[in-house]
Design a binder for these strands. Sequence first.
DNA 1: ACTATGTCCTGCGAGC
DNA 2: TGCTCGCAGGACATAG
Length: 301
Amino acid sequence: MTFNDNVTRIALQSLPQPDAIVFSASVPELPEVETIANGLDRRVAGDHIDSVWLGSKPEPLKSPAKEIAKTLEGTRIEKVRRVGKHIVFDLASGKQPAQWIVHLGMSGRLLVTEASADIAPHTHAIVKLSSGREVRFVDPRRFGRLSVTRADKNGKPAGFTGPGSEPLGIDFDLFVSLFRKRKTPIKAALLNQKLLHGVGNIYADESLYRAGIRPRRRAGQLTRDELKRLHYAVQTVLQEAIALGGSSVSDYVDASGEEGFFQLQHRVYGRTNAYCYVCNTPIKRIVVAGRGTHYCPKCQK
DNA sequence: ACTATGTCCTGCGAGC
DNA sequence: TGCTCGCAGGACATAG
């Protein structure tokens, strides 16, 4: 069993401590971040931020520590939502509206805990709430990033919109234009957050499988019919995953303490040498854009 | 302007 | 059993 095959299993592990709810996913992509953001919104929207502690490790901080603390402290959390793979906390205060932006990277977790709960290793930020609870950011691998947005010089609120287009709801003409004339493999284009944001390695592979397109095909060479299938596949695969609460590998828990079960629906990702559900051909694993890439050599052209 | 590749970082599993 | 080593990933930097 390779590392990747882990995603085909449901990991049975202990539920979170009663005084802490953990919001995390291994390799969080759009559906996982959506589920996590919704869960956070249900638990902390309306609460106020009293103070912020930031750790000494600089990597997770995209904005200066002072600016993050200053921006968050004294605000009310209006809404927690997803933009691309980012979790956005919309903040209101007497002054300008602001936002706290969290990217979970590979191993980032957000915890909502009682203040008395033990502090986990690799805790990089603690946000103290008026309710007495805390939102904690924990990230062993430190690929996650924290930043803030504030009003610009002209007083216009800086609204975080993400690096690219939202895959859910993008119309077909815009979808087509993203890939026009691109020589890069379609898999690499799907991973490029400046084009579509939110699609990562798992859902890129699953989308291409459903669309019947090989991952190394040049993006700009795809026919209109193939792009039509891909457009449909990307949206349905993401929507199905959201409906199931995302893909869980180890300790992904949503607001109600339930795990995501989309990993049971993976048809190619992590199924190297396993048989294609449609044609029984062994699933191949190659490397595209430096990422493990899984496809069916018979179903995908 | 676009594309390809290397880097970061830790935990896990394979293999000796 | 216990160790070392290689690999997994998203975003960004850098080079071509």
